[in-house]
Design a protein around this nucleic acid. Structure first.
Lengths: 244, 244
DNA sequence: CGGTAAATTGACCTGGGTCAATAAATGTGG
DNA sequence: CCACATTTATTGACCCAGGTCAATTTACCG
């Protein structure tokens, strides 16, 4: 069960200098281990740290007035989370571990230091932010304008890709690691309808399920159904300031 | 018809030093004037500049395979747009002027320089990104989990607030500046249903319409219907690195 | 092996979409 | 300032994707 640090993630975008790598590991504070189901940050609670996922899987969500839940994002090793601590005194979202997970905490002041000493890393933070913003606009368009089946297909591909980023051995078979209710809360559907759509995807021979595993049978066709766009392609970081 | 620059916007978050203000105006390149309806950036086209809105109103959107449109964001004076040029060679979204508008272009390399010389401004860029990310999660939750009426009410408040940020004289009456079809493309609805919901909000005495103007009659109740959360409250930037 | 959470399915309902026709509002050229 | 051409806004009639409710079944867990 591999893990991935922030430096690994950023290193996939540019070649980090030794000084930068060192600065990134200096950023990391104490490690926290979370049991599956544990809450790391609660919506509306005070927060002043951000975290990097080292191992496991988490999700962030908001609760609405009527008790319904919208899952905003799933979090995997190498992801930065609770970046909102850089702006808000109280957290706008709840973060819960979906699996036993390890996260490393960093204090906000450490980010300030990083920004002053390593401009290129600061730029990379902006870049990561931006990639995630675009991924979020994809989800926005999916919720606003696409069918239930399309949204679920897109979620399956997204989770598979996230898992593969951590463990390159993963190809078409992977653990979804979500209940159908969670899939529904991420895609704006009910668990009942998620179930019906999964069955349809199965009948269409696009996926297979069994033993807690999901298998993509026809990736090209699934990607077409999902309206899938690869947001890690077409990246151009040639403008970044020089490394230190 | 007032305008607002990037320095004005950032100056609402912190007190800028002279050096910072100077750096921000140095960032700005040539001004471009757009007629209503003009396209500034086209989805999938190459792009290498970002812009700051000086005057007017624009929108960004994506088109889906079936020809439907999802509007991602409305843009007002002081807003930075096309930040994705910092990451992607080709634009992930289209940007169109909804009104005659002025924008100032900045080259990506100017941002790199800014980052190296003014760490605090770089931090502020991250902060703005983050505020917008949270605003976007609100929209995500709205699309995924709330009714048509709620989404439209939220949009009305959002537009009013954006207009007020530019012109403080605006209180309850403002120009929406959108067709019902555009409201629908922003909220994931059809123009027909938008029309029905606007009528209901009117019948509920929450809003009034006339002469191209929108009036909020009962803001407290409208905010409740809209599930509205003020994302400019509760900001805490005490951690930022020192100004230069 | 009982007990609880998760998955499935069937029957039925409704919020919002579709289609189509009118009516207003906005522009445009002259 | 007028007559015509486009967009937009409005409404009514009807439809369907996805929700609701309620029962089973299956999988997982100590």
């Amino acid at each position: 069960m591999p893990d991935r640090r922030l430096a690994d993630r950023l290193g996939e975008l540019v070649n980090l200098t030794e000084s930068e790598t060192a600065a990134l590991s200096g950023l990391q504070g104490r490690m926290r281990t979370l049991r599956r189901g544990a809450t790391l940050v609660r919506e509306h609670d005070r927060h002043a740290e951000l975290f990097v996922v080292r191992h496991g899987m988490l999700m962030s969500f908001v609760m609405l007035a009527d008790g319904s839940r919208q899952i905003l994002r799933f979090l995997f090793p190498g992801d930065i989370l609770s970046l909102s601590a850089l702006v808000y005194r109280n957290s706008p979202e709840t973060i819960v571990a979906l699996d036993d997970s390890d996260v490393v905490a960093c204090d906000r002041s450490a980010v300030a230091v990083l920004m002053a000493t390593h401009p290129r890393l600061c730029g990379l933070l902006l870049v990561i932010n931006q990639i995630e913003r675009v991924a979020m606009t994809d989800r926005l368009a999916a919720l606003g304008r696409t069918s239930a089946k399309t949204r679920i297909a897109a979620l399956l591909l997204e989770i598979r890709n996230s898992r593969r980023a951590v463990d390159p051995r993963i190809a078409t078979t992977f653990t979804l690691g979500l209940t159908q209710e969670e899939v529904g809360d991420a895609t704006g559907l009910t668990s009942v309808h998620v179930n019906r759509m999964l069955r349809e995807l199965e009948n269409d021979r696009l996926i297979a399920r069994g033993g807690g595993m999901m298998t993509i049978l026809d990736e090209a066709r699934l990607a077409r159904v999902a309206n899938y766009v690869d947001r890690f392609a077409g990246i151009d970081l040639s403008w970044l300031p020089p490394a230190r």
